[in-house]
Design a protein around this nucleic acid. Structure first.
Length: 904
DNA sequence: CGTGTCGCGTAC
DNA sequence: GACGTACGCGACACGG
């Protein structure tokens, strides 16, 4: 049923406020104040306004303090009697928000929103105005009357007419109050008739139309037990109905015709949203304004910044003199590409005091491009600033600047502050550390995005085509915002005890990573082409077999088409399902392999196609035309645990297992006269588990240098170390990893394809033998719950709000994170420290060995053959001695002409 | 035609 | 629902 036009929309504000407050968890604005109720409410409201454009609307609130229902029944809404402080402080802002939207609002002392809604709905009906009650609450179902009043929940987009009410509650709207009176409503502390639940209540009302009728015909109630309950609690039943029945006669001085919305105050609304950090709502409001053809108000602070475009040498020299002697300035390069290895400099923005920045255009080709200083002259003039440690440099993702400047012949030194990295340390779980987002959170400001200046998608232009004035405004905004963020973020880092980690680990790492990216790794393109042809042949052969078995050709790479073949055509068993259909993943196919040979072939096909598509054919495209090498990007602000990530290409997931994997790694080669040296930490996370837990058996095993999985197998299977079978060792290995990841008996059972009982027994046995580990896990979870965050050995922190959840599954997830994060995160801390130590010593010793890759617990170096001996010792020493733990850290080394043989 | 999501699979 | 952290491919649905 469609919603009628020209209806009066009555918004149940209080219920949405509460819902959002409890459903959205902790959401806070830039000032740290809670905002989730405001956000949830605003989202709902915007949806109503945008989709329905109501001509009559009223936003209705519960009155604070007691109402007539409390006089009727003392414990009514006892659970909610006092609004939580965190919610109460959001209410005024919600009301302000409604007012700024120009919408009428209503509230009446002594009554709840429901009563006001009912009263207004009644008045509208008398005037033949259709009413839409905007609420998800079932209490309000009692107002629904086909043709006059319907209820709508914009969040789920559910419409309730009499039919839907009947479907949901099993009674007519007019019986809703009677239903709740009989069954009670625990959320509002409505008692109901003790012992009568939803089913009984519904059955009674199916036979008798009203609560009165039920009591008039008590003798006709079949069940004597129910009859007895009804008899005994007659007063409670009628009291309950008085509590739930909505009053439609409140003394409200408001007519439906008073509910016309006024003109929204867009400028103030944007400011309010921005202040609250509601980026997405700001964006959608702006879009609305644009689509209405209205002028979009200026962004806050855009006018508060002094921007100067530097076009002559004397001015540039004046800038240099001004910055000299400062402690810090911020630097932002505008370039022709997001890829630092391909970018050419278009302009340079600098900021060294609040609300002021300069832009030096050097590579613009479009509007205003005349009268630019020559790029090399600018760099030469800036060089004294850039290549000295002092003043320090700040930037947003300043590794990018480092790489680009290196390629331009400038060795940027004194990298002191990266706002992206700082933001990451403050909240590594946050999905974004873009400047735009950081500025919104820590400064409460909305800054122009790159897309605003250069466009996006098809209409995106090269930055060199952006008019100089426009580019200057954008670049200066970035540089100056970065500048102001430094002191704010620095104070936060101090406050959170993260300053040391930032200064001594993450910031020194920036340049080390930049150097690894710049150096890149040599890839043998011809070898990859050979592999590609080989794979192609094999893939075609396997595909032919699959088509033959399927009886037709189809796209094997399409899970949907594959599912059709396997499950419809060949009628194989559906092992498990995904959201969209039967699953065809590896686990399923391995199981189906016992039933039909096609499964095995599909597995082979998948493996080969994966390798070809993701690695063999993708990698050559990423070989740099000038260096002939592959230059990955290491991202320092992505993972929740502190690990690095790698992209374009991801060199951290190059295959290692299997024949084809080996061949792919053979394509990563050393320069002539060099070898690749690979050094990886052995079992670092398990060693950290031993260290943290202090478990005597685990610690002893590592001190003795035992094969840890074999040792574990001996312990849990109760056999001598030398009698452990490979099967037993495999099980033990899975359990060891499972412990680190917080695996459940179910998970272990699935992994090992054993029964849940057997899996549980194995885990019990493990904890029996390694009781220190059990204690560590429990202690860690409790500690994390109290602090609200997990912590690594070097003090990295990750918030774990999941531990506070009332949802058991979410909470268990939190428990796994609480255990896993310190282990994975500390391993990340340690290898980062080792990288910095090694980088420093290599430089000190004047060695030509270069660090190329980091793969979480492994470092790969390119070593001149004559340095191998030195480098081996140095790397091993620095990695193993990175820190002293209760157990030794050991590093395995290997070397060879390519990455595969370096592992040998 | 570009963009976002899903299913899947690679690494540690 | 059930094992932590990533990135990226091809297919597909969707919207302009």
């Amino acid at each position: 049923m469609a919603i009628p036009k020209k209806a009066l929309y009555l918004i149940d504000a209080s219920s949405y406020m509460y819902r959002a407050f409890y459903a959205l968890g902790r959401l806070t604005g830039p000032d740290g104040k809670p905002t989730q109720a405001i956000y949830g409410f605003a989202q709902m409201l915007l949806k109503v306004l945008r989709e329905k454009k109501p001509e009559l609307i009223c936003v209705v609130f519960d009155a604070p303090g007691p109402n007539f229902r409390h006089e009727l029944y003392a414990s009514y809404k006892a659970t909610r009697q006092k609004m939580p402080e965190d919610l109460a402080e959001q209410v005024p802002l919600i009301k302000k928000l409604v007012a700024l939207h120009g919408l009428p609002q209503a509230e009446l002392e002594g009554f709840e929103a429901d009563d006001i809604i009912a009263t207004l709905a009644g008045r509208a009906s008398k005037e033949d105005i259709p009413v839409v009650v905007v609420s998800a609450d079932k209490d309000l179902h009692q107002l629904v009357a086909d043709g006059r009043i319907l209820q709508w929940d914009p969040q789920k987009d559910e419409i309730f007419t009499e039919k839907e009410v009947a479907a949901r509650l099993g009674v007519k709207p007019s019986q809703v109050a009677d239903l709740l009176a009989l069954m009670g409503d625990s959320s509002d502390n409505v008692p109901g008739v003790p012992g009568v639940g939803e089913k009984t209540a519904r059955d009674l009302l199916a036979r008798f139309p009203t609560l009165e009728a039920v009591y008039e015909h008590l003798d006709d109630v079949k069940s004597s037990a129910v009859r007895k309950k009804l008899e005994n609690h007659r007063d409670l039943a009628f009291l309950s109905r008085d509590l739930v029945a909505i009053r439609d006669d409140v003394p409200l001085n408001l007519a439906p015709s008073d509910c016309r919305p006024g003109e929204p105050r867009y400028r103030d609304l944007l400011r309010l949203y921005e202040g609250l950090g509601f980026r997405s709502l700001v964006k959608s409001l702006r879009e609305d304004l644009e689509s209405m053809g209205r002028e979009v108000p200026l962004r806050k602070d855009a006018s508060e910044r002094t921007v100067a475009v530097v076009r002559d040498l004397s001015e540039l020299e004046r800038v240099v003199r001004e910055i000299q002697g400062r402690e810090l300035f911020s630097l932002d390069l505008e370039t022709t590409s997001q890829d630092a290895m391909r970018a050419e400099i278009v302009g340079i923005a600098l900021s060294w005091e609040d609300h002021r920045a300069v832009y030096i255009p050097v590579g613009h080709r479009g509007e205003g491009s005349e009268g630019q200083l020559d790029a090399s002259l600018v760099l030469k003039t800036l060089a004294p600033l850039l290549t000295q440690d002092r003043p320090g440099k700040a930037g947003q993702n300043i590794k990018y600047e480092w790489v680009v400047l290196q390629r331009a012949g400038i060795d940027l030194r004194g990298i002191a502050f990266d706002t992206m990295v700082a933001s990451y340390l403050l909240d590594p779980g946050h999905p974004s550390h873009k400047l735009e987002r950081i500025a919104a959170e820590y400064l409460g400001e909305s800054i122009p995005s790159y897309a605003d200046v250069a466009g996006k998608g098809k209409s995106q232009v090269n930055f060199s085509q952006v008019p100089v004035e426009k580019a200057a405004a954008y670049a200066c905004s970035d540089a100056e915002t970065t500048w102001r963020l430094v002191s704010v973020l620095e104070a936060k880092l101090e406050e959170e005890k993260l300053k040391e980690l930032f200064v001594s680990l993450e910031m020194p790492l920036v340049r080390v990573l930049g150097a690894m990216e710049l150096r890149g790794i040599r890839v043998d393109a011809r070898k990859l082409e050979d592999i590609s042809r080989d794979l192609e042949t094999k893939i075609e052969a396997v595909a032919a077999v699959i088509y033959d078995m399927a009886g037709r050709e189809f796209n094997i790479q399409s899970p949907k088409q594959l599912a059709e073949v396997l499950f419809d055509k060949l009628c194989l068993r559906v092992v498990k399902r995904t959201k969209t259909g039967p699953s065809t993943d590896m686990e399923v196919l391995e199981e189906l392999a016992a039933e039909h040979p096609i499964a095995e072939h599909v597995l082979t096909y998948r493996t080969l196609a994966k390798l070809k598509g993701t690695y063999v054919d993708a990698l050559p495209k990423l070989i740099h035309p000038e260096t002939g090498r592959i230059h990955t990007s290491y991202n320092q602000a992505v993972t929740a645990t502190g690990r690095l990530s790698s992209s374009d290409p991801n060199l951290q997931n190059i295959p290692v297992r299997g024949e084809e994997g080996r061949r792919i790694r053979e394509a990563f080669v050393a320069e002539p006269g060099h070898v690749l040296l690979a050094a990886d930490y052995s079992q670092i996370e398990l060693r950290l588990l031993a260290h943290y837990s202090g478990d005597e058996h685990l610690v002893a095993a590592f001190r003795e240098g035992a094969d840890i999985h074999r040792r574990t197998a001996a312990e849990i299977f109760g056999v001598p170390y030398h009698e452990v079978t490979s099967e037993m060792r495999r099980h033990a290995k899975t359990i060891n990893f499972g412990i680190i990841y917080g695996m459940s008996p179910y998970g272990l059972a699935r992994q090992l394809r054993i029964g849940t009982t057997a899996a549980k027994a194995a885990i019990d046995r493990y904890f029996e033998r390694y009781s220190g580990v059990k204690a560590f896990i429990e202690r860690t979870i409790e500690h994390t719950r109290k602090l609200g965050y997990a912590e690594t050995l070097l003090g990295r922190r990750r918030k774990i709000p999941e531990l506070q959840s009332r949802n058991r599954t979410v909470r268990q997830q939190g428990e796994r994170l609480a255990v896993n994060t310190p282990l994975q995160g500390t391993a990340a801390d340690l290898i980062k420290k080792a990288m910095i130590d090694i980088d420093r010593v290599l430089a000190e010793e004047g060695l030509k060995t270069a660090m190329l890759l980091q793969v979480h617990d492994e470092l790969v170096f390119e070593v001149p053959e004559e340095e191998l001996e030195t480098a081996r010792k140095l790397v091993q020493e620095k990695m193993e001695k990175v820190i002293t733990l209760k157990v030794p850290l050991t590093v395995d080394l290997g070397w060879g002409p390519d990455w595969s043989r370096a592992h040998g």
